[in-house]
């Protein structure tokens, strides 16, 4: 076990980790159950968190890499999550909810990164966020409304 300092949502956590531990497992161990494990291969977007502002799949990111970096989970952006979440609710696409925190983190990253929000750009940016419940159409409606693009 190796001692590290992990900065999550602006709080420093001093913890012991296994050398090969993935960030997702570490976050859940500390108590951030909002980050979920789904495909465990970096292919579904469910476990998305922000590391220094970039959205990454935490299931595929070694915790040891994280030192001196800042991690943000949905717990650290509660107000923004509610804001974006309300648009999802208004379309009814918060179905089983399992994909939603990862989707919201990705939307936050997308908002900060892209300059042009066409439907094509949005879909390309968020293609890594798999959803089995909604069929995506409603999610795109909600996101467009949120971005105030028609």
């Amino acid at each position: 076990m190796i001692p590290i300092v992990l900065n999550v949502n602006d709080v420093n956590y001093e913890i012991m980790v296994n050398p090969g531990e993935m960030l997702l497992d570490t976050l859940r161990k500390i108590g951030f159950t909002s980050v979920k494990k789904s495909c465990d291969t970096g292919a579904c977007g469910i476990c998305s968190v922000l590391v220094d502002g970039k959205v990454i799949p935490s299931c595929s990111y070694f915790t040891m890499k994280i030192q001196n970096k800042k991690v943000i989970t949905i717990d650290g952006v509660e107000e923004k999550a509610r804001e974006i979440g309300q648009f999802l609710l208004d379309e009814g696409v918060d179905q089983c909810g399992f994909c939603t925190p990862g989707l919201i983190m990705s939307i936050i990253a997308m908002e900060n990164e892209l300059n042009e929000f066409t439907e094509k750009n949005i879909k390309h940016y968020l293609v890594g966020n798999i959803c089995r419940c909604s069929g995506y159409e409603g999610q795109i409606r909600a996101i467009k409304n949120y971005l105030e693009v028609s």
Binding site: S34, K36, D75, I104
Partner: peptide, 22 residues
Amino acid sequence: MNIPKVDGIGLVTGKPAYTNDL
């Protein structure tokens, strides 16, 4: 009516809700 789901806000903000969270 398009009433939003009653558990919507809890789910979208990542509150512990699923078996592995509980």
